[in-house]
Write a protein that binds this DNA or RNA. Structure first.
Lengths: 340, 340
DNA sequence: CAAAATTCCAGAATCGGTTCCATTATGAGT
DNA sequence: ACTCATAATGGAACCGATTCTGGAATTTTG
C-alpha cells in the first residue's frame, strides 16, 4: 500500500517482483505474446493494475528502434492553412499511437537543416515536411541521412523518390486566370513565393496556360515571385500597383501573401472588386465573413493533413510509397470583378 | 572509407574503436567532462568527425532521465492565437535544445486526459497546457501523476501550485464594456466559453465591474457562456440577436467565437458598427484588413508563447515556479459604434 | 511406460549511451 | 628516493524495456 503511494516510477521490474515472475514474462504478457499461460496472465495483470504500471516509451524505443514519433516540419504553424493541416495530421497520427514533434523552419534553409538533424538524432520514425527550397543541395542530404520515412507536402525533390501529397494548383489557377482573362484582363499581377518549390511552379503553369490559350505571353514585369511572407507581398503589391502601367487584376499565392497584399491595397486605397480584380490562392477559413467577398482557389487542408498521416502510416507498415493529388476549386466572388 | 559509406548507424562504440579508446572516454569528450587530456580530445574528435557520429537522443534520454521534450497541449492549433503562441514557444524551446510535441485536446476532457497519459509515458520534461476544464477531477490527477514541470496557459487549478502565464483580461474587457456603456448601451450580449476556465471568469469580472460602476447588474439573459467553438457562437449569436429584446451591443471571447458570431450576424443581415456595436476579445493578425474595422481587446500571443517557454526552462533549470500576467489593451474602432 | 513433442517460463544479452569506481601514470613535496 | 595528491583512463553497472535460447514441466504418441 504505502509503496504504491510513494514510489516514483514503477518499472517492469517492480511488476515482476510483485507477481513473483521473471521480467521476460511480464513483457510477454504486456505485448500479447502467445507463450503465456492463463495463470501467468492473471498474476501479471493483477500486479500491473494494482501498481498502475505503464511501460516506458523511451526504453521501448531504444530497444525496438521505433519511437512512434513523426516529425512535422513546416515554414510557419501560424499560417492557418498549415495549422489546419497539422491539426488533421496530428489527430490521425494520435489515433494510431503516434505523436508529432512540430518544428517551424521559418522559411530558413539552415533552420530547416538543423530541424532535420534533430529529427535524425531523435530517431523519429518519419518526417512530414514542406521544404523551404527543393533545389538546395543540403536538402537531399537531409532527406537521405534522415534514414526514416518521408512524406512531402506539395514538394518534389529531384533524384529522390518519396511519398508526397501534392495539390493540383494548376487547375484552380488556370480557371481563375481564365476567369480574369474572359473578363477582359491582360495585365494580371501575381505575387507569391519562389519557383524553387512545386507549389509556385505548378501555379505558374496554370497561369501561363490560360494566357497561352489566347495566344499571349505573360508579362514578366507583373510577376513578383520572391517570398511567401506577408512583408514581401506587401512591398511588391505596393510597387506593382503604384507603377505605370499597373495591373488591372491581382493574384496572390498563399494566405500570408494574400494578407500582405490586402494590407497594401488598403493602404493605397484600392478596393478589390472595384478598382482591381482580386483572386486569392488558398482560402482561409475566416474568409467567409469578409466583405467584400474574396474569390479564391480552394484546397482542403484537412484532407491534406489526414492523407499525409495515412501515407506516413502506410510507409511505416508496408513500405509502400505513393503520390496523391489533391484537387483545387476556383470560386468567383465579388473581389474578382471590377478593375477595368 | 567503405565502412563509413555503408554503415547504417554509427554508435559511440564505433567511435571508441576507431579512436582506440574506451567508451567512457568518448562519452566524456562529447559531454565536455573536465577529466580529458588534450591528446584524448583530439583523437576522439578526429574519429567523431570522420565517422560523422551523432549521439542518439533516445539512449541519452533513457540513461539521463531527461528527454529534452516539452509537451504542448491546447484545444486546437488551428486557432490562430494558439498557433502564434505555439510558434513563439517552439522557437524559444528549440533555441535551448528542446523539442515540442504538439497535441490537440479538441475541447474534449477525455482526449486531454489521454494526451497527458502519453506525455507521461514519453517522459517529457515538461508540459505547457491550456486545459479544457480546470475543475474536472481528472485534471488534478493528470497534472500530479505527470511528474514533470508544468506551465499553464491562462489557467489556474485549485489546490495545485504551478507556473502559469495568465492574461489580464479583466482590464481590457472592463475598458471595452465601459466604452459601450458610455456610448449608451445597457443591453450587451456576451458570447464565449464556459466559466470553468480562468479566461472566462476573468473576462466576466471585467464585464461585471463595468456594470457595477454604474450601479447596474448584468442581464443574464444576454449571456451565452457555453463554448469557445465557432458553432456555439454562431447558434447563440443567432438566438440572441433574433430574440426580443435583443442586445444593442455584442462581445465575443476568443477568435473562433468571433468568427462564428460574425457569420451569424452576416446571415441575419446585421452590420457591425451600424446595426449593433461589436467588440471582439482577442485579436488576430488579419483583423487589420477587415472592413469595417473591428474593435478589440488585444493580447500579445508571441509574448505569451515565448514567456511560457522561458518559465518552463526556468523550472527545469532552477525549480523556480511563478505566475506571469500579460496585459491586454482595448482599441476602439468602427465596429463598436452604432447599435442605438 | 519410455520417448518425443509441446507448452511455458527464467535468464541473459542487447539497444546506445552515462557515470561511478578502481587503477595507472604523472607531478609535487620533503 | 619515497610518499602523497592529482590527472587521466578503462571497466562495469545501469537506465527500462524486448527477445532469443535453453531447460523444466506437462502432454502426446507408439
Amino acid at each position: 500500500m504505502s509503496e504504491e503511494t510513494f514510489t516514483g516510477k514503477i518499472t517492469i521490474r517492480d511488476v515482476a517482483v510483485r507477481a513473483g515472475v521473471a521480467l521476460s514474462s511480464v513483457s510477454r504478457v504486456m505485448s500479447g505474446h502467445p507463450d503465456v499461460s492463463l495463470a501467468m496472465r492473471a498474476r501479471v495483470e493483477e500486479a500491473v493494475s494494482t501498481l498502475g504500471y505503464e511501460p516506458d516509451l523511451i526504453a521501448q524505443s531504444l530497444r525496438s528502434g521505433s519511437t512512434r514519433i513523426i516529425g512535422f516540419i513546416i515554414r510557419d504553424i501560424s499560417n492557418p492553412l498549415y495549422a489546419l493541416v497539422a491539426r488533421a495530421c496530428e489527430q490521425e497520427l494520435q489515433r494510431h499511437g503516434y505523436s508529432m514533434i512540430l518544428m517551424n523552419s521559418d522559411a530558413n534553409i539552415e533552420t530547416e537543416s538543423k530541424n532535420f538533424q534533430i529529427m535524425r538524432r531523435r530517431r523519429v520514425d518519419g518526417v512530414i515536411a514542406s521544404l523551404v527550397d527543393e533545389g538546395d543541395p543540403s536538402v537531399k542530404k537531409s532527406l537521405i541521412s534522415l534514414n526514416a520515412a518521408i512524406v512531402l507536402l506539395d514538394r518534389e525533390v529531384k533524384g529522390i523518390h518519396t511519398s508526397a501529397v501534392l495539390t493540383n494548383h494548376y487547375q484552380g489557377v488556370y480557371e481563375a486566370t481564365k476567369h480574369l482573362i474572359d473578363a477582359g484582363h491582360t495585365k494580371i499581377g501575381f505575387v507569391t513565393g519562389d519557383e524553387n518549390v512545386y507549389t509556385t511552379r505548378n501555379r505558374m503553369r496554370g497561369f501561363k496556360q490560360a494566357f497561352g490559350d489566347i495566344g499571349k505571353e505573360i508579362d514578366e514585369s507583373f510577376l513578383a515571385l520572391g517570398g511567401f511572407d506577408a512583408e514581401y507581398a506587401f512591398v511588391h503589391t505596393h510597387n506593382l500597383m503604384t507603377s505605370q502601367p499597373r495591373p488591372t487584376a491581382l493574384m496572390t499565392g498563399g494566405i500570408s501573401s494574400t494578407w500582405g497584399a490586402l494590407r497594401a491595397l488598403k493602404e493605397i486605397g484600392l478596393k478589390v472588386g472595384e478598382d482591381l480584380a482580386f483572386v486569392a490562392l488558398d482560402e482561409w477559413p475566416l474568409f467567409d465573413i469578409f466583405s467584400p467577398e474574396i474569390s479564391c482557389v480552394y484546397r482542403d487542408a484537412r484532407t491534406i493533413g489526414a492523407e499525409s498521416a495515412h501515407m506516413m502510416l502506410q510507409i511505416l507498415k508496408s513500405g509502400v510509397q505513393k503520390k496523391l493529388i489533391i484537387e483545387t476549386k476556383f470560386t468567383a466572388r465579388f473581389s474578382s470583378g471590377g478593375g477595368l
